[in-house]
Design a protein around this nucleic acid. Sequence first.
DNA 1: ATTTGACTTAGAATAATTCTAAACAATACT
DNA 2: AGTATTGTTTAGAATTATTCTAAGTCAAAT
Lengths: 145, 145
Amino acid sequence: MNQLKQMDRGALSDALGHSGHRTTPQRETVFGVLLDDRDHPTADEVYTRTKSRMPSISMATVYNCLEALVSCGLVKQVNIEREPTRYCPNLSPHAHFHCRETGRVYDVPVPDGMMQNLAKMLSGEYSADSVELVFRGHLAKGQEK
Amino acid sequence: MNQLKQMDRGALSDALGHSGHRTTPQRETVFGVLLDDRDHPTADEVYTRTKSRMPSISMATVYNCLEALVSCGLVKQVNIEREPTRYCPNLSPHAHFHCRETGRVYDVPVPDGMMQNLAKMLSGEYSADSVELVFRGHLAKGQEK
DNA sequence: ATTTGACTTAGAATAATTCTAAACAATACT
DNA sequence: AGTATTGTTTAGAATTATTCTAAGTCAAAT
Ligand SMILES: [Mn+2]
Ligand SMILES: [Mn+2]
Ligand SMILES: [Zn+2]
Ligand SMILES: [Zn+2]
């Protein structure tokens, strides 16, 4: 897939517009790269993939586009340890699993309402607007995908 | 407090020894700094505090000592977003709360067994040996400590 | 057509951390 | 004890992901 679906194109220009940004070919292409492979690529990986679709794009623009997508809420940054920031376009609440062997990061679905329940666990002195849950370990044998 | 308690001194040389490291004055002092203020200092903050107790210490040594303490299991690294790594000597399972307003990081106690239960939530394809739970938000009014 | 402002680009700057190589110190060997 | 070995500390250089700068591009808006 190399072209945004109508639905995603709409979500993109809505979200960008709503936060005062323009829709540009670079932003569309970067967003498409993120939607096509949900493997939490780093900025560098996004750059490589985007460059193969749009050879003139620069690293700085990839960072700029990612920042625009994050600031309009279509993409989340995923930081694991001190590794380069990864990017995730999965907007539903979910956790992450980080494989120590391969370094890959997977989305882990969570039971409905669990993230909110975790936040409720906090004593009254704290008020959380976001909850981050990361597992680290290894994939069961034969699950390396 | 400027001197390790006998208990902590024992834990330190045990843990260091068990992982093939020597006990040195620098490592003792850095460990003491971490035990004395549980505010999750960065390496830079640890450096400043340690230097006031041992003026000859260098930044590189602080990094080396922190690495030794982490690798022998006495201290945990806490990474929040892309901020500098913080250090936490609290070995019991706990979560963290990161205040968006002050940037401070607090330990949040968790119900007994909760971290393991979260890990059990994972489908069979994943096997987690560590679980990280971070809340972000702000402190209730009047709780700024 | 001109102006305006957002966007893109190449390359320089930044900053936390790691690396290097030399000095130092503790332990092990003879 | 004296010497070799090995781990530790140190100052400073190197690394690297990311941000910044300044100049060029482009597409509305006037
Ligand atoms: Mn990894
Ligand atoms: Mn912060
Ligand atoms: Zn994700
Ligand atoms: Zn902690």
